[in-house]
Simulated assay, not measured.
Amino acid sequence: MISSTRSRFEAALSALPSPDACAIAAARARQAQLTKPPGSLARLEEIALFFAGWQGVERPMLERGRALIFAGNHGVAVHGVSAFPPEVTAQMVANFAAGGAAINALATLADLEIRVLPIELDRPTADFTRAPATTEAECLAALSIGAEAVEPGLHAIILGEMGIGNSTAAAALAARSFGGAVSDWVGPGTGLDRDGVERKTQVVADALAFHADAPHSPFDTLCRVGGREIAAMAGAVLRARQLGIPVILDGFISCAAVAPLAAATPAIVDHCLAGHCSAEPGHGLLLEKLGLEPLLRLGMRLGEGSGAAVATLIVRAALATHAQMATFAEAGVSSRA
């Protein structure tokens, strides 16, 4: 799990397990014997090899998949950076609990266990244009909540979130981690008009200026311009890596949660798949910075883990074909002319 000290968090980030090369080789050898032309299933074959490496087996599976939906509130919402009021966060968490949200329907379809973890919704983070969003202790606590939601024996996790104002935090995290023009990272989020996007862009610029002289370590960046649900997702990604569990990332916010980690340690995303590329303008740029090619491009922008849940169906197709297809010998089919 994530330790209660930042030094151990940083040490965990510098000691990342690698996939099992022998399992990948065995899975690749199996692929070569399946009743199809080599490479004809393209990305599905790559996904099967990816899962084989992280699960350490020739025929990986997805019997225990978990959707983790973290929720938090953001003090920066006072600047009108969202089309919805902060009260919607708690209201949507109640909707998740009642089974009425998109992620509930999609998680059921993808056969994923769903866990919703609201984090101190009655206590928003600080307005990060004037102070760090969280204290070190608050950030560590959120990292630990995310880590503790990932346990040995899971075959994959998907990450989702709910938090009014968190696309502003995501833009600030991406900009502070990878640089570039602030306007490249800021989008409409829940549906802001052009004036709203301009206001949001200025808020992010103000935040970056306020924290410009502060350390740029992954932990400091999470503390200063992140949020509790965002830090929790980062903690879940790191713990999943320690356990060799593949992660399917959702949209802009879940990818931004790993941005500070990836800027310092690019290999942190080696056990991650990008479920989709959302309609939020900064997401495509962030995926490029992370070196991740999305499984889907459907123009979605809901969050909640919805895109990652849909992508899980693609993963299931990849694992099913890899495990269930007959070999040439089993089918009595000639493999080569």
Rank of each mutant, 00 (worst) to 15 (best):
249 L>M: 15
313 L>C: 14
184 D>H: 14
201 T>I: 10
307 G>R: 08
19 P>N: 03
278 S>Y: 00
146 G>I: 07
101 A>V: 09
84 F>S: 13
318 A>Q: 12
127 D>H: 04
60 P>Q: 07
299 G>M: 11
190 T>H: 04
123 R>Q: 14
106 L>W: 04
236 A>E: 08
161 E>H: 04
31 Q>E: 13
108 T>Q: 13
337 A>C: 08
293 E>V: 14
333 V>P: 04
25 A>R: 14
69 I>F: 02
35 T>L: 04
102 A>W: 02
40 S>L: 01
45 E>F: 02
167 S>D: 01
321 T>E: 11
335 S>W: 06
4 S>A: 13
278 S>C: 08
214 A>C: 13
311 A>V: 10
147 A>H: 04
188 P>F: 02
65 G>K: 04
302 L>A: 11
195 D>P: 01
305 G>S: 10
110 A>V: 10
286 L>M: 07
231 A>I: 03
174 A>L: 05
220 D>R: 14
23 A>P: 09
134 T>E: 15
172 A>K: 02
163 G>N: 07
88 V>D: 05
27 A>K: 00
262 A>V: 05
147 A>C: 11
160 G>D: 09
67 A>P: 05
170 A>R: 02
97 A>F: 09
146 G>E: 05
175 A>I: 00
294 P>Q: 08
166 N>S: 13
296 L>E: 09
83 A>F: 01
45 E>A: 06
94 A>V: 09
250 D>W: 00
38 P>N: 06
246 P>Q: 03
133 A>N: 09
132 P>R: 06
164 I>E: 02
74 H>P: 08
152 P>T: 10
233 M>K: 00
88 V>I: 15
43 R>I: 12
241 R>P: 02
302 L>C: 09
168 T>R: 00
281 P>Q: 09
262 A>E: 01
211 H>S: 06
100 G>A: 11
174 A>E: 03
117 L>G: 01
217 S>D: 15
78 V>C: 13
132 P>Q: 09
326 A>V: 10
108 T>L: 14
131 A>H: 11
319 L>E: 01
59 R>C: 14
258 V>A: 01
273 L>Q: 07
300 M>N: 06
306 S>G: 07
282 G>T: 04
114 I>R: 15
